[in-house]
Design a protein around this nucleic acid. Structure first.
Lengths: 278, 278
DNA sequence: CGTGAATTTGAAACAAATCAATTGGTGTGG
DNA sequence: CCACACCAATTGATTTGTTTCAAATTCACG
């Protein structure tokens, strides 16, 4: 399953569609979307013309339902039209490691392509409306509409870059910095969706945040409390209000991996490199 | 740039080609490869028939040369035919975070597709021979040979899954476990390439390993020494000999994120769930 | 062989995990 | 409607793994 980080996709910045209704038009009690709607949802420039004839069906899930499980055969991709989900890996001992919290505009299932089955779990954390993209249909469509192919490359590449950023974060940032970035990214993401960037509701438990960020529940809780005391944010159970986004963004790593190089040469008389710092 | 972990790709397991020479045939002083050769290199079932006519050119790089830089326009993908490389992210302060050590059979550059330029650095750590896959050519070829499209999906999906695994590792494993896995994965990878799985040469510095694994140079060094003292491995500078691969693989996490759930219910009389452990 | 880089090793400092206990919220049943 | 059980979140005390700082050693190379 896909493991989106929460970070807003670069493509997406400044493309607000606060007032736009959810994609999909009703027909025989079911929702369907055109390719164009899908591109808009994904924040990718609209693919070729005259594709209104291609309709993709929606499915709904209720809060708590499992959408994909480890081992499920891969045959279709999903696009989140509305709702909040969670993707996770289950390790050998049954512990879950959260990979991401997909929401509107995210694509699910891409990691199942290469071996033909999914390797992670996805479940709905709220009522969800997803658009189905049967993979074989996608393939046959891309013969007549080559742009679809490019759309897919872009989606997968975007996902790749997102995970790359996540790896960078897990490998180098302190707990404080991780939580700060998480909150800012969530805020940005909510803004994109037309909600308030300032006040929002965490859909997930502290434990899930911890798992996602590679921290324990307690550390997440403590860090959030610290931000609160610091005046950057306000917390009431799962309601967060961001008071000073800049301060949060500025939170860089306290630790750092290769940060010895800053002041090593003092005998040579050379000034320390302007690069490394902490 | 691609950020392969070192882990052997699932597709690739048990497909040894120790005795196979490097791909590519010489022509006018240059090396060229067919699609079939490329598929073999990537460990993907050979794509369609009669594609021998499509030839892809190779390029050579010498040790230390930069292959891709942050900001470079994206226009071609690369496949490693031989040699050892390194991909890394450079943060705002100029610190480098190693993303992977691509080697034979890995594809480079996939993360550049979606925004049209590369976001990471790739450089050669040894003499390297790479196969060029101009992206526009790939696109036009896939019109006549639809299998190419699927090949690309698989490659990208594989990369996605690899990074997913990396995220899982960075988020949950102890330093010891990370280094252990790193060594085992390297060993497996060398075996795939026909080298000894038992004794091999680390191409990278301790610092680079540390950056890759989210640890400091000192921790990597200490951990390797500990394995040595423990009798799992033998170390002489950059030459590693694996004595007890099983012991290394068995090294699980000492820390763990959500591992409190094991023995919580004692009042209910229910046995603890069989799943969670540490 | 000497010089600088890479690696190793030790001791101290520190961030985050662990253990443990409390609080707050939610739902259920008496 | 209150009491109780259950879960999530918070907070504190303590431990531990890893980083940091510092110094010694080995290796690579001109």
């Amino acid at each position: 399953m896909a493991g989106q980080t929460i970070q807003p996709r670069p493509d997406r910045i400044a493309s607000l569609h606060s007032d736009r209704p959810q994609a999909g038009s009703r027909c025989q009690g079911l929702l369907w979307s055109t390719l164009e709607e899908i591109c808009r949802l994904l924040c990718i420039e609209s693919v070729s013309l005259a594709s209104d004839r291609m309709l993709f069906q929606h499915v709904q899930f209720r809060s708590g339902q499992r959408i994909l499980s480890h081992g499920d055969a891969f045959d279709t991709l999903y696009i989140v039209n509305s709702g909040f989900l969670k993707t996770a890996l289950i390790d050998d001992f049954g512990n879950e490691k959260v990979l991401g919290f997909p929401m509107k505009g995210d694509m699910l299932g891409m990691d199942g392509i290469h071996i033909g089955h999914h390797t992670s779990e996805t479940l709905a954390m709220s009522e969800c409306d997803l658009i189905l993209l049967p993979f074989t249909r996608l393939n046959s469509l891309s013969r007549t509409t080559p742009d679809i192919e490019h759309l897919m490359y872009r989606m997968m590449s975007r996902e790749l870059a997102l995970r790359q950023a996540m790896i960078g974060m897990l490998g180098t940032l302190s707990a404080e910095a991780r939580v700060a970035r998480f909150l800012v990214a969530l805020s940005d993401r909510f803004a994109e969706m037309g909600y308030s960037a300032r006040t929002f509701n965490l859909r997930m438990k502290r434990q899930e945040i911890g798992s996602y960020l590679g921290l324990t529940t307690e550390t997440v809780s403590r860090t959030i409390s610290a931000f609160h005391d610091l005046g950057c944010i306000t917390v009431q159970q799962r309601t967060i209000t961001i008071l000073d986004a800049e301060a949060l963004k500025a939170l860089r790593r306290l630790p750092s991996s290769p940060a010895h190089q800053a002041l090593r040469r003092s005998s040579t008389g050379l000034a320390p490199k302007p690069s490394a710092r902490r």
